[in-house]
Nucleic acid binder design. Structure first.
Lengths: 341, 341
DNA sequence: TGTCTTTTCCAAAACGTTTCGGATATCCTA
DNA sequence: TAGGATATCCGAAACGTTTTGGAAAAGACA
């Protein structure tokens, strides 16, 4: 039962050829005669040979694997964002016969050592970094390395690296402007963690829209959230206590916008009548709840990131080293002109 | 800039000791004197040595990696189920300093060759199989192998393997019985793909409850779904056209239950008044929508699966080789006694 | 017949690690 | 001071693959 592993050596012993010839035969080199190649292939077949990928990796000094470390904590990824990006990355990698080495670490020192492990332990040929932060140490570390990597999101570091990002600033500028055009003047904002790049961009877009409309960004109407549903609820509650109450609330992500909807319902405030609510991401529940939002094609971004990385690994030049996508505004029933009262 | 890789050989050359001694010094063996160990550690430090994990894997014949192949298709995982399980697996593996090798393949021949690649290419020390199917070829394949694996879900094969599963049959028996006790007699059912084990179990529970209540399982009130939102909508539409209309609808998963809610809303059928709706899983949107459902602790199951696998890999005996969890009924506002009309 | 290709094969080195089985030197004990 | 124990080190083999640089045999050409 405990059959010995079958390696090139096994085939060599069985066929009488050398390990070299067996290897080259299987690889299809032209310096092995058709007849012996045939013999070797048959032997491999009957013995059930499968190459040891680890040995091959060691010899070839490449792993056909890319690494992804999810900067998440807790039992559920904070939102469907991670699922979509993993799906995109996974599908694209499968096309190139590459594997994905996945870890999950909340930001912190253990996260960075997970990167070091992948990079310096030479476990991967490249890395994908997602959800960029201010002064992102992952990026400064990786750029000190010669390993290829691509990033979802921009950074405030003075480092050039290949990335894809959605233009969050323009997205929220557009969304805020839309609400202003409907007549809203008191627009509450639920922000995200200050160290996340996209959270800042989104806030910036909101502010700029207000300013260009001649309004000032009243910090009383800006409440910090943490992108989770719980944090969103807390922030929404706080905003809804303000007097005068905001007529619209924008949340940095859909998850918190959804939370705002629940809180409003609980207080018998009618969404899309007494209160407008909007978010960013267009996650599945937003659709059910008819939430106005900015859509970003996370799955496609995942695919594109993989593809870029694959090019880099192969040593090909990148057609676009920096990609900035425009998010699309999806207007649903959660937004309307303010009730004049 | 293109600094040479630093290996044991580099340290050996620099310190004047042999590769063997360097290796043993770093590993902390007692047959290297404290002074030379000190020298070696310092040299490793200044040179920035990091062991090549691939080489180590080859030598040790183990990878400290487990494989997971997501049986999913399309841009988004069909539901938050996959996210939660990946999170659980990832967190638990991190505790044991193991990595996760992830692929994504829809069921089919390419899926199986992805398994073969991981197993026969010796890329992983063990595998986790999720979402079991009838006559699941992944399981029969893996059990023909000597590689450890654990499974989320039971199977109809005559093979013994370690698994964790939730008792879907009992879960839906309980849920259906609850609805019957509220007075419902026409309970529609949105089933799942026939080849998925859990979908069958859930349907069985539904049927058994009807039968024990003296009712028959009228197949007109059972419509096939595919676990996605779209499929759920189609099925719900079909059920709501029946005359007499069902007073309650149970869906095989929450995603389709959520879809049922949207369809009903669209038709101005009030959920929790004119129609009761319930699902299975307790995904986040269910909470927002106040959907009655059966909760299964997917994250914890992921953790536990990892843990079981880790024990198997270490060669430890398993305390529980077969775990069957009871799902918890979460009653929310989407269910109520039928309107008597 | 002798040289020159071409065909077909293989030994050995390499990738970077760990481990086995000594070897040498030092120390203690009687 | 001979004996054995102990401390410290290392060469070589092994993990399984690919590649380099020939070697041997066969064929082509003069």
């Amino acid at each position: 039962m405990m059959t010995q592993r079958v390696t090139l050596k096994t085939i060599a012993a069985k066929t009488g050829f050398s390990i070299t010839t067996v290897s080259r035969g299987l690889a299809g080199y032209s310096d092995v005669s058709p007849r012996t190649k045939q013999i070797i292939l048959e032997a491999a077949e009957v013995l059930g040979y499968y190459p040891n990928l680890t040995a091959r990796q060691l010899q070839k000094q490449s792993t056909d694997t890319v690494g992804l470390i999810l900067p998440a904590q807790g039992p559920r990824f904070s939102d469907p964002y991670f699922s979509a990006i993993i799906a995109g990355i996974g599908d694209e990698l499968a096309q190139h016969d590459m594997d994905l080495l996945l870890s999950k670490h909340p930001p912190g020192p253990k996260e960075l050592s997970a990167y070091r492990r992948m990079v310096e332990g030479q476990r991967v040929d490249g890395l994908i970094v997602i959800r960029t932060r201010k002064q992102d140490e992952r990026i400064s570390y990786l750029s000190s390395t010669s390993l290829p990597f691509v990033v979802f999101g921009r950074s405030d570091l003075d480092i050039d690296f290949p990335y894809i990002d959605e233009d969050s600033e323009v997205g929220f500028f557009q969304l805020t402007t839309y609400l202003l055009s409907q007549g809203h003047t008191r627009i509450g904002f639920i922000s995200g963690p200050d160290n996340l790049m996209f959270a800042n961009f989104r806030f910036d877009g909101y502010c700029r829209a207000l300013q260009e409309a001649g309004l000032t960004c009243d910090m009383e109407y800006v409440v910090r959230g943490d992108l989770t549903r719980k944090g969103g609820e807390k922030a929404a509650r706080q905003l809804l206590l303000l007097a005068p109450r905001p007529t619209a609330i924008i949340a940095t992500n859909d998850l918190m916008a959804v939370a705002t909807v629940s809180v409003a319902r609980e207080k018998d405030i009618k969404i899309g009548e007494d209160l407008s609510v909007a978010g960013f991401d267009d996650i599945p529940p937003s659709d059910y709840l008819s939430l106005t939002t900015m859509r970003q094609p996370t799955y496609e971004i995942g695919r594109r990131l993989s593809n870029m990385l694959h090019q880099l690994i192969k040593g090909n030049p990148l057609e676009d080293r920096h990609v900035l996508l425009k998010p699309e505004m999806i207007v649903r029933n959660s937004t309307c002109p303010p009730r004049s009262y």
